[in-house]
Amino acid sequence: MAEWVQNLMDSMGYLGILLLMILENIFPPIPSELIMPSAGFAASRGDLNVALVIVMGTVGSVLGTLPLYYVGRAFGEERLVKWADKHGKWLTLSGKDIRKADDWFDRHGTKAVLFGRMVPGIRSLLSLPAGMSEMPMPKFLLYSAIGSGLWASLLTGAGYLLGENYDRVEQYIGPIGQIVLVVAVIAAVVWFVRRRREQRQQPG
């Protein structure tokens, strides 16, 4: 993966960074923790300008959020509520749960998008609830850009400083994304089990 990323950037330069960061948001197996440090390493060699690397990485990351945002927007809260009321029983999920989650995102969505863009494992997924809750596009783009810019700057700077050892960034940060996903799965399982118990305890 590292060699493919490096070869693409060597051949396409800034456009390669843009395309890779768009794809990273749609296909998470392509990690930003490898793309941006690699670009930072190229900047340290004098092949690329570090400021333009960060700009292109940020723009690519923001553009990459749009497909899932529009999927969430097209699906929408009301459709999800109707689906949950009709088919969600086996998941212990109801339309009321969906509305509660949507209300939470309405209150805290800006912080979730801003800080979530810097958390491996959930960076891309946050676009779905943002779209489903119909977060206004300007607000979504603004907070995505700020979070993505900070993340791109951090990774680019790490690659710039580490030089040929830029791949260590992915080695250290990559497992964090896996831990986040595991924690999310465990939390979902705990919630599921509790809801099942509550339903069984409810009279008739």
Rank of each mutant, 00 (worst) to 15 (best):
F41R: 00
F75L: 15
G13N: 08
K139D: 05
G16T: 06
G76A: 13
E198R: 13
M36I: 14
V113I: 15
D85W: 10
V81D: 07
F27Q: 02
L23I: 10
M36L: 15
Q199L: 13
L52D: 01
D103L: 12
L52R: 01
L161Y: 10
E33F: 08
I173C: 11
I22E: 00
L63R: 05
L8N: 10
M21Y: 06
G116T: 07
G95M: 09
V185Y: 09
G177T: 09
L141D: 01
G149C: 06
Q202A: 14
I176C: 09
G149W: 03
P129F: 01
V119E: 05
V193P: 02
R79Y: 11
R195Q: 13
K96W: 02
L93A: 10
K100Y: 05
L15E: 09
S44H: 08
N49Y: 01
G149A: 06
L68T: 04
K111D: 03
R194L: 08
V62I: 12
Y172P: 06
K111M: 12
E78Y: 07
M56L: 12
V55R: 01
V180S: 07
G149E: 06
I98G: 00
E78L: 11
A51D: 02
A84D: 11
G204D: 12
S61V: 03
G159V: 03
E164S: 13
R99P: 07
I35H: 03
E164R: 10
P203C: 09
E78T: 14
A2G: 13
S153M: 10
G72F: 07
V62K: 00
E3D: 15
Y172L: 14
E24T: 04
E77S: 11
L48C: 05
Q178Y: 09
G95S: 08
S148R: 00
I146W: 04
G147K: 00
D106S: 10
M137L: 15
A130M: 04
A158P: 01
E77I: 12
A184E: 07
A39N: 03
L20Q: 02
G131Y: 01
P136E: 06
L34V: 08
E78V: 12
S127L: 05
W83L: 14
P29Q: 02
I176T: 13
N165C: 02
R45E: 15
A184F: 15
G46Q: 12
Y143F: 15
A152D: 05
L15M: 14
R117A: 12
S11G: 06
D102E: 10
W151T: 00
R200I: 06
R123S: 04
V62S: 01
R99A: 08
P31Q: 06
V113F: 01
L19F: 09
L52T: 03
V119K: 03
T110M: 12
S124W: 00
P136F: 05
F41Q: 01
Q178L: 14
R194G: 06
G88E: 08
G60R: 00
R45W: 03
V50Q: 03
M56T: 07
T58L: 04
S124C: 05
G147H: 02
Y143W: 15
H108R: 13
R99Y: 08
D102H: 09
P175K: 10
Q6W: 08
A112M: 14
W191N: 13
L91G: 11
G147P: 05
L15Y: 13
